[in-house]
Design a protein around this nucleic acid. Structure first.
Lengths: 355, 355
DNA sequence: CACGGGTATGTTAGCGGTAACACTCGTCAG
DNA sequence: CTGACGAGTGTTACCGCTAACATACCCGTG
């Protein structure tokens, strides 16, 4: 009778019985304890194999006080950036033998971030990575009094939370300098939402580069990262006199902008040069192929796990720490020489054919 | 002395002491057990609040044999489809009070899928969602002897694993019929990799629709989902006599194809109509805005969790079950009337200007 | 007024591991 | 020859929770 029941999966005691040792010895083998005779170890291993034994996760976690699980809080994991970062995080964590538990936020509010962290804490995660690029969530993090190791991706400016981020400022500067080298008088900017730290960094880099070159700084247009907002920005920009170069804060908006330019018969790069940011896989096939700033999201993910694990495993609070991953320019067809005939001080309607 | 130590987080016994009850009563309150006096409940709740008590996840999991954690195995979570599906899964799971642990595969092999499932099993997940659109992984699933509740997204054809998927066949049919309605003689196809079930479904739907309409079925070109492969396919197609309409198996490849057409001065939709699949956010801003088949990934995620939770919570094996989520056509500018002058049996070089 | 039966609560025994300590041997120094 | 010591192994005590059973008390009833 009892043999027909859906037998419970074997436990350590079963292995011990089969191998003719105590359960503690089994535990020793599993934990690579040195004081186990080779022959005994073999016997235990054989028993484990025969029974298909697997250590019970919960029991182990209960006594060791470690779940070997990392929590990730992220904003909209559908976006290329967060998705790629999480991919890197997951790969690195798994390589180190950690599980990754994810909470994906619809909206990015301080309360939402805190709630998510609370949820993960309830699961007993050993540490948390917050991919929270908004300033509000950075503030939430700063206010966090958890003693749980935490690392922020893009946004740990305030507070003692260590942070890993791509060098937005320098990336933006590269974009602008690239355009200036082509002889453009100045570079316009379509930025991301103002409360995003990444948007802020790119804006700052753009300003710095223009300032350093002594160029006029046009009023930036604020988008929301979506292709649509880039499209709208494009239509606004078309009417700007003297426009020959635009630095768009992400590739998706750049796509929208290119579309708007196409509708208004502005040719890129002959009349206006465009540079994006992110280097999404599609960028190479935009009309025209987009010059953009490449971000190594995988590296960001890896580095953040590296820091987090170091803190978890050493119990070290390590203080504030900031890792900056460089960004690099990928030159493609959307940027080129400034048009020879500048329409510098021309009136509203320039030589371009506009509808 | 002892008060200066980093005090261990409070346990049930601490709450019990503070509330002047036994730890079991605390447990009863936490588990909404009916037999607790209202006043006692209040007192316990107050104590919990005061101490900031949180139930220990591992201890609870150990005794209930449930981790309230769901495992997700997915191929390349960087892609829009998987990322969106996982987003839906995560939202639905969290709403039901479950954690979501993710393993993201670099390559999709049967061994990889099994290893990932093993990894998650080691964490003690209560159930698994496999977002594994390749045929090889579907086979791996079928061979799986785990007694863990499992549900497949796109791909549980073989074996008793329940599956949730978008109606690829019907989606493809809609794409083709849409094109045929515009008077196109036939529709070419750029398919996905042959071992992907989604690619297979779209191919089948395309064939069926053409067969039903009594149209010739051109040789499909096989891509790998990437924009580049679409680009290459585009260059191949340009030389096909009689080409007026193409159904591309995903939007990314469609982008590449549009690029190739642009380089060869083929205008879309005037000379050739193009329809994609997926409806990625960028599609609306492609040159020209892409007519495509919209997939409700969120719904797929939600439905798969629904099935999984039902099986977990009822212990019900439920047998084979298949949920099909409809796909819908989104008509945009890339598709339109077939050109009046058919270049039906024309020689290699047609009236088009080709470089 | 003794008694059955429900309600509110307490007590006890695990869940399946790991850590600490105890024990049994050889081996070797004094 | 004996005691110290370390290697190999076993025994026991938890980790923090829930389930099962035990207990105390209240009520209505014959």
């Amino acid at each position: 009778m009892s043999s027909s029941e859906p037998r419970r999966s074997p436990v350590m005691a079963d292995v011990a019985r089969l191998a003719g040792v105590s359960h503690q010895t089994v535990s020793r083998v599993l934990n690579d304890h040195p004081n186990v005779r080779g022959e005994t170890r073999e016997r235990v291993l054989a028993a484990i194999d025969e029974l298909g034994y697997r250590r019970n996760f919960a029991a182990r976690a209960l006594v060791t006080r470690q779940t070997r699980t990392l929590g990730v809080v992220s904003f909209d994991t559908t976006l290329y950036g967060p998705a790629s970062t999480i991919y890197g995080i997951e790969q690195a964590a798994r390589a180190a033998g950690y599980f990754v538990s994810i909470v994906s936020l619809k909206t990015l509010t301080a309360a939402g971030v805190l709630e998510a962290i609370g949820f993960l804490t309830g699961q007993g995660v050993d540490g948390i990575v917050v991919v929270a690029p908004q300033r509000s969530s950075a503030r939430a993090l700063a206010a966090l009094t958890t003693n749980l190791p935490t690392v922020a991706v893009e946004g740990g400016r305030a507070g003692g939370v260590p942070a890993v981020s791509v060098d937005q400022v320098n990336g933006a500067r590269q974009a602008v300098e690239h355009l200036l080298e082509f002889g453009h008088e100045t570079v316009w900017h379509v930025s991301g939402p103002s409360d995003w730290l990444e948007a802020e960094g790119r804006l700052k880099g753009w300003r710095k580069a223009l300032t350093a070159a002594g160029r006029p700084i046009p009023e930036p247009i604020v988008g929301d990262w979506s292709p649509r907002s880039g499209y709208e920005a494009g239509h606004l920009l078309v009417d700007q006199p003297g426009l020959t170069a635009v630095f768009v804060a992400n590739d998706q908006m750049a796509l929208g902008l290119l579309r708007a330019f196409a509708e208004r018969r502005i040719s890129v790069p002959e009349e206006v040069s465009v540079v994006g940011f992110d280097d999404i896989p599609e960028a190479e096939f935009f009309p025209p192929p987009l010059t953009t700033i490449h971000q190594d999201f995988g590296e960001v993910g890896r580095r953040s796990i590296e820091i987090l694990l170091r803190r978890i495993e050493s119990g070290d609070d390590g203080g504030y720490e900031r890792v900056v991953v460089p960004a690099s320019l990928v030159a493609r067809a959307s940027s080129g020489q400034a048009p020879r005939r500048r329409t510098k001080a021309a009136p509203r309607s320039t030589g371009r054919r506009s509808a």
